[in-house]
Design a protein around this nucleic acid. Structure first.
Length: 445
RNA sequence: GCCCCCAUCGUCUAGUGGCCUAGGACACCACCCUUUCAAGGUGGCGGCACGGGUUCGAAUCCCGUUGGGGGUGCCA
């Protein structure tokens, strides 16, 4: 989720400035990389509609990184080190102290198991120019001699990133705030590599959960995978809109913006600097709004993965507008229209019990309604008037009187408007269901 | 521990020294509408963390305190 928000902001900046949006797969750690995760990135980005101009994987550029490492070592900007984590902790007595520079002057040559470390200057400080955070200063004494290359010869992420960013002439580094502490290292490396004009940085506020902790894949309840939302029937435009608002606002009282509007109005300089809670409830509200705003034909189209081929029927089409304003996700659509696609109504037993079995006049209501429906005109208004009149005879308002009919025809007490639904269902099927309900009620009584 | 970041209703935000007795949205509550459920409408609840400055005037600028978060990996 955080990555998607970062991607969106990057995409927005690239598109509005005529820049190039580069998708780079940072898979330098072969052991942790999984092909399905990479596929997940592609499909999620495509789902959101964030198209990329260039694509490459760092795992294909190892030669470039090796070359840069050799150059750094030759120039004395980096040195080899054979200390293990345990060695360092044993010497410093501190789990979180960072590397103690033990190997700086040992003159180690490259070799298996030896990491290449960047030699951070003892003096001075590095200033980060950040569009969102101003100019944080990092004293070099507080920066450890960080590793660039693993003992197995592969590049770590910071080396790969700087090499690629120099190579790509990257102008904007827009990423999560958790990377801010890496930035002085990035800058030191950039300069050591003789990079051209430095990029401008924008460190976005992190996305947090209810406990105000950074959203994490490790915590399933954080629900950070986009696929989860796609599969539950969230609309990408709702997700985009909501994500854009996490850390940024268009000013004034507007909240609903299309991708095009975002592109026109988004400014990195206006991004907030404090963490934002990813509120699934508000996302749901956005989704509901976007579903209701869909043209009915498109709603039907988008429901197909959830409703199946039956989504194409004229009955579903006819009811679509009434369904749209009653669902918050596309996944709820089947429950709304299932009654259209069956001959045998599946009763919700609770509703049947409460609204039919224990309804004082259910039997009479069902009988009279069935009789009236035999020959009346078949449109929603007529059907409503008929039931209203029958209800009146029993001293009941339409709100109460419709329940036995509703449960008989649709199987449950909640759903799309009854009379419109019956109009779509047709006389024969409606009558069959009323009779089935009469029989069921009679046999249980 | 050390480094860095952050601080307006519960949440996301508007607000960039006077337009603020702080506006909107989500959530929540009430009422209206109503064929269920929704949607919609109206109203309500609720906030500038605290303390010092600067200024005629501060939510807005400065300092400090407190609180929260991130980093501190041969992960990214």
């Amino acid at each position: 989720m955080g990555g998607a928000r970062s991607a969106l902001y990057n995409w927005l900046v690239a598109r509005r400035t005529g820049g190039t949006f580069i998708l780079r797969i940072e898979d330098t750690d072969a052991e942790r990389n999984r092909e399905e995760w990479v596929e997940g990135i592609y499909s999620s980005l495509r789902w959101l509609g964030l198209d990329w101009d260039e694509l490459y994987r760092q795992s294909e550029r190892a030669d470039l990184y090796r070359e840069a490492a050799e150059k750094l070592f030759a120039a004395g900007a980096a040195y080899y080190c054979d200390c293990t984590r345990e060695d360092v902790v044993a010497r410093t007595g501190d789990q979180n102290r960072g590397y103690d520079r033990f190997c700086r002057d040992r003159g180690l040559e490259p070799g298996p198991g030896r990491v290449l470390r960047f030699l951070v200057p003892d003096e001075g400080a590095t200033v980060v120019h950040d569009l969102i955070r101003g100019e944080p200063v990092f004293e070099h004494t507080a920066i450890e001699d960080f590793p660039l290359v693993r003992g197995n010869g592969s590049a770590l992420f910071i080396l790969a990133n700087v090499v690629d960013d120099v190579d790509n002439r990257v102008t904007h580094v827009i990423r999560g705030e958790e990377h801010l502490p890496n930035t002085p290292k990035y800058l030191l490396l950039w300069r050591a590599l003789g990079g051209p004009e430095e990029p401008v940085f924008a460190h976005l506020p992190v996305l947090v959960n209810e406990q105000r902790r950074k959203l994490s894949k490790r915590r399933p309840e954080d629900r950070v995978e986009l696929e989860l939302y796609r599969d539950e029937g969230y609309l990408p435009e709702a997700m985009i809109n909501y994500l854009a608002l996490l850390g940024w606002g268009p000013g004034g009282d507007r909240e609903f913006l299309t991708l095009d509007e975002l592109m026109a109005e988004f400014r990195l300089e206006d991004v907030n600097s404090s963490p934002a809670f990813f509120d699934q409830k508000k996302l749901l509200h956005f989704n509901q709004h976007y579903i209701a705003a869909l043209p009915p034909e498109e709603f039907v189209e988008r429901c197909r993965p959830f409703v199946g081929e039956q989504a194409d029927t004229a009955e579903f089409q006819a009811l679509a507008p009434l369904v749209q304003e009653r669902v918050k996700t596309l996944a709820e659509a089947p429950g709304m229209v299932a009654f259209l696609f069956t001959d045998e109504v599946a009763y919700d037993e609770k509703d049947w019990d409460k609204r039919v079995a224990r309804h004082p006049d259910a039997a009479a209501l069902l009988d009279e309604t069935a009789a009236a429906f035999e020959s009346c005109l078949w449109d929603a208004d007529t059907l409503r008037d008929a039931v209203a009149e029958i209800g009146e005879r029993h001293g009941q308002g339409l709100g109460k009187a419709q329940f036995p009919v509703r449960v008989a025809v649709m199987g449950k007490a909640v759903g799309p408007p009854l009379f419109e639904s019956m109009a779509v269902l047709g006389r024969e099927r409606t009558l069959n269901r009323l009779r089935a309900a009469q029989a069921r009620l009679g046999s249980s009584a």
